[in-house]
Simulated assay, not measured.
Amino acid sequence: MTLPSLFSPLSIGSHELSHRVVMAPLTRMRAGRPGNVPHALNVEYYRQRASKGGLIIAEGTQISPSGQGMPATPGIHSPEQIAGWRDVTDAVHAEGGLIFLQLWHVGRISHSSHQPAGALPVAPSAIAAAGNAFTASFERVPFETPRALETAEIPALVESYATAARNAEAAGFDGVEIHGANGYLLEEFLQSRTNQRTDAYGGSIENRARLVVEVASAVAGVWGPERVGIRLSPFGIANDSGEADPMPLYSHVIRELAKLRLGYLHLIEPRASGAGQAEVDHKDVPSAAELFRPIWPNVLIAAGNFRADTAEAAVAEGKADAIAFGRLFIANPDLPERLRRGAPLNPYNRATFYGGGVEGYIDYPALDAAKAAE
């Protein structure tokens, strides 16, 4: 029996990937303003990173105006945003690639400057996150105490995910990923430290998982489950998140999601939690993919501080079916080909991750360009 490798084909539902090097969803804060509309700069960024038979998971994209938490992040709730994303998906498809959209609501990880009419951000409970928010003008200020969602508001919230999924379909995406990780709204409902509700969405593990399952079911109803993925960070600590004992909670969640037959589960490895904000490599932590692989029957994508050798090993050993790369994909638009050849990698410039223009976004050289410059 031949072991799978990073460059073995892989099926996600009806989609056929020619390799297993996935581009992770990456917040870059470069959407056009006003309106948070994808524009020509974003089209070129994604076009550069498309590869034949490769999967891109586009950056977190707010499902509604109240879902926004950072400046210049794209949405999928206006006609202009749908049209802007259509230009992106057309460019990726022209290169032979596939692209899913990550559906995002940040919950309490926001600021009133992003919210309609300057309202407070919403969350499961009125508990402020530790740390600093990005305001609409890129300033950093302490997080505000959010407003707890009323029980009667939750059906409309679930429907806003379904509407965003329909809009993603109109924009030409090949599927969608639900963002249930990194301390944003859905994870806030999951975790006991951020969810102190006493209604049907709080208290027990089953109740705290209810919203995630309802959202996944609603989105699967739009796309068909095989074209829907979900991202979770069971051991994560990003954005003041974290569950004291993650195994009972996330084992329940993953088993319930498995019943929906979603196309893939995307797990962030704990050693990389918070990696977007600083260089991290948390020591002596478990492997999320290894722990939850036995209870997830479909494709499993792992992300978090992988190198070529560790990615290859994770796939060969069956711990994951594909590996998502973030920072390395920022700096290496042709990352799959570089990994295939064992070629050197461009270093990334953390100072240009968030906001700005061309620098650190579409000016990283591909292999052939790099050789020509030598």
Rank of each mutant, 00 (worst) to 15 (best):
P4L: 09
L6G: 05
S11D: 15
I12M: 01
G13I: 03
E16T: 15
S18R: 12
S18N: 13
H19F: 12
R20W: 06
V21W: 02
M23T: 01
A24L: 07
L26F: 11
M29K: 02
M29F: 09
A31T: 02
H39G: 09
L41V: 07
N42M: 14
E44S: 13
R49Y: 10
G53V: 06
L55E: 04
T61S: 15
Q68H: 13
P74T: 01
H77E: 08
S78Q: 09
I82V: 15
G97K: 06
I99W: 03
L103Y: 11
L103F: 11
H105P: 01
G107T: 10
P116W: 09
P116Q: 07
A117S: 13
V122F: 11
A130K: 14
A130L: 12
N132D: 13
F138M: 14
E139M: 12
V141I: 15
V141H: 14
E144Y: 10
E144V: 05
L149Q: 08
T151M: 14
A152N: 11
E153I: 12
E153A: 15
I154M: 08
E159K: 15
S160W: 00
A164D: 05
A164V: 12
A164N: 07
A165F: 00
A168M: 10
E169F: 12
A170Q: 14
G172R: 02
F173I: 08
F173S: 08
V176F: 09
E177V: 10
H179I: 06
N182Q: 14
L185R: 03
L185C: 06
E188C: 02
R193A: 14
G202F: 01
G203T: 04
A209S: 12
V219S: 10
G224W: 03
G224F: 00
R227G: 02
R231Y: 07
L232H: 03
L232Y: 05
P234R: 07
G236R: 07
G236M: 05
I237G: 06
I237R: 15
A238P: 05
N239W: 03
N239K: 08
D240P: 04
S241P: 00
E243W: 05
A244E: 15
P246W: 02
P246F: 05
V253D: 04
V253K: 00
L262E: 06
L262W: 09
G263E: 04
E269G: 11
A272P: 01
A275T: 08
H282C: 12
V285F: 10
V285Y: 08
P286E: 10
A289R: 00
F292K: 00
F292G: 02
R293C: 12
P294Y: 10
W296H: 07
A303T: 12
N305M: 02
A308R: 14
A308N: 10
A311S: 06
E312D: 11
E312N: 08
A314V: 03
A316R: 15
K319C: 01
A320R: 03
A324P: 04
A324Y: 07
P333T: 05
P336R: 06
P336C: 03
E337F: 05
E337L: 13
R338V: 01
L339F: 12
R341D: 11
P347D: 13
A351D: 13
T352D: 06
F353D: 05
Y354A: 00
G357F: 00
K371A: 15
A373E: 13
